[in-house]
Amino acid sequence: MTAWRQAPVVADAVAAELARDLDPEDLSQILDAFRVDIGSRAGELAMALAGGHVEPAQRAVHSLKGAALNLGFFRLGQMCAHLQQLAQTGDLAAIVVLWPEFAATCNDSLGRLGHSGLAFEIDSSIVRP
């Protein structure tokens, strides 16, 4: 259930693969886009939770899951997979409980992208456990 906690924030093997297979400029633009994706999807999830909307919550974590796993951000990706399962059963309350850990995992990922300190104060205030 909490397997994501054991997963690395970033898998070195995937990072090395991407560095091998992509033009350096492409890779840096992709990681920049991922940074934006984290913020926007987390924001969408927060809004969905605040409004009690299951469908958009599920879409937000599904999208972020794919983006994170593609780039080797396994902890965030696996946590999103778990949140997606919760959303599929309609259990938004369980996601709200996990929100602080989700926000922390997002921030850890942003930290590895060289953008530490981007917290989710605004979104967190929307989500009230």
């Binding site: 991407l18 992509l22 492409d26 633009q29 992709i30 990681l31 886009a33 991922f34 934006v36 994706d37 999807r41 999208s63 972020l64 794919g66 983006a67 593609n70 780039l71």
Partner: peptide
């Protein structure tokens, strides 16, 4: 692809 980082990847 709707997610920009995945699309660019």
């Amino acid at each position: 692809e709707d997610t920009s980082s995945s699309r660019m990847l």
